[in-house]
C-alpha cells in the first residue's frame, strides 16, 4: 500500500475536484461537503476521462412524474458519454453490480504528522514537498494484481481487438485477455458467409 500526498486540503473546495497523476494513474480527487473521495480517471465503459465530466445531483422518480432531486453534486457523469457514477462508491448508477470505477481511500492528515513520518517513514509513505502548517490529502494506492494493467497499457491498438476495461473484462467482454485463450468468436465460429440475405454465394 503506497501513500501519496496529492494536494493540500484547502486546495479543493467543496464541490471542487483535482485531477492528479499518481503511480502512473490519472486519478480524480473530489470534495463533497468536506469529505474527500478519489476515483480512477478512466471510464469502464469506453475508457473516457471520467473525472473530467460534469457532476449532477441524483434524479429519481419512483413513479412517473414524481421527480426527486437529491445529493446535489455527488453524481459524476463521464466526459464522453455521460455514464453516471456515484462519487462516494464508484458504482455505476445504471449497472451498479457489474460496472464500477476503481476508488481509492483518501485521508486528510496534518502536515506536521507527515513531516514527523518523513523522518521515520511509514512503509510506502512517499515523501512529498510539504510543510508543517496546512493539512494534506493522502491517497492510498494498492499494488495492482497480476499484470493486467501492464498488459492493457500496451494493447490499445485496434489490431489487438480493442478492449473494454474494468467490469466488462471481468464479465467476459474482454478483448485483451491477459493470457492467450480461445476467444468467443472462435468458439462461435464467426462466418462471413452466413449472411441470411443478399445474393446467393
Amino acid at each position: 500500500m503506497a501513500r501519496y500526498i496529492v494536494a493540500t486540503a484547502d486546495e479543493i473546495p467543496p464541490g471542487g475536484r483535482k485531477i492528479v497523476e499518481v503511480a502512473g494513474r490519472s486519478i480524480g480527487v473530489f470534495n463533497l461537503g468536506g469529505e474527500f473521495f478519489a476515483l480512477r480517471n478512466r471510464c469502464p465503459h469506453q475508457g473516457g476521462p471520467l473525472c473530467e465530466g460534469k457532476t449532477f445531483g441524483l434524479l429519481q422518480a419512483r413513479v412517473p412524474g414524481a421527480i426527486e432531486y437529491s445529493r446535489p453534486g455527488e453524481i459524476l457523469t463521464c466526459a464522453w458519454h455521460g455514464w453516471e457514477f456515484d462519487i462516494r462508491t464508484g458504482r455505476s448508477w445504471c449497472a451498479p453490480e457489474r460496472l464500477r470505477v476503481r476508488r481509492y481511500e483518501v485521508s486528510v492528515e496534518p502536515g506536521d504528522a507527515l513531516a514527523a513520518a518523513a523522518d521515520a517513514p511509514a512503509p510506502g509513505l512517499v515523501r512529498g514537498p510539504y510543510q508543517a502548517e496546512p493539512r494534506y490529502l493522502v491517497v492510498e494506492i494498492a499494488p495492482e494484481r497480476g499484470s493486467n494493467r501492464a498488459a492493457s497499457g500496451a494493447t490499445s491498438g485496434h489490431g489487438r481487438g480493442g478492449g473494454r476495461r474494468g467490469a466488462f473484462r471481468r464479465r467476459g467482454w474482454s478483448a485483451a485477455p491477459t493470457r492467450p485463450r480461445p476467444t468467443r468468436w472462435r468458439r462461435r465460429a464467426y462466418s462471413s458467409s452466413r449472411s441470411s440475405y443478399g445474393p446467393p454465394r
Binding site: H45, G47, G48
Partner: peptide, 16 residues
C-alpha cells in the same frame, strides 16, 4: 458527446 473511441467501441472481439 456520443463519440466512439476506436480501440474500445466494439463490444466484442472480431477476427483481425
Amino acid at each position: 458527446w456520443d463519440w466512439d473511441a476506436p480501440d474500445t467501441a466494439l463490444p466484442a472481439r472480431l477476427p483481425d
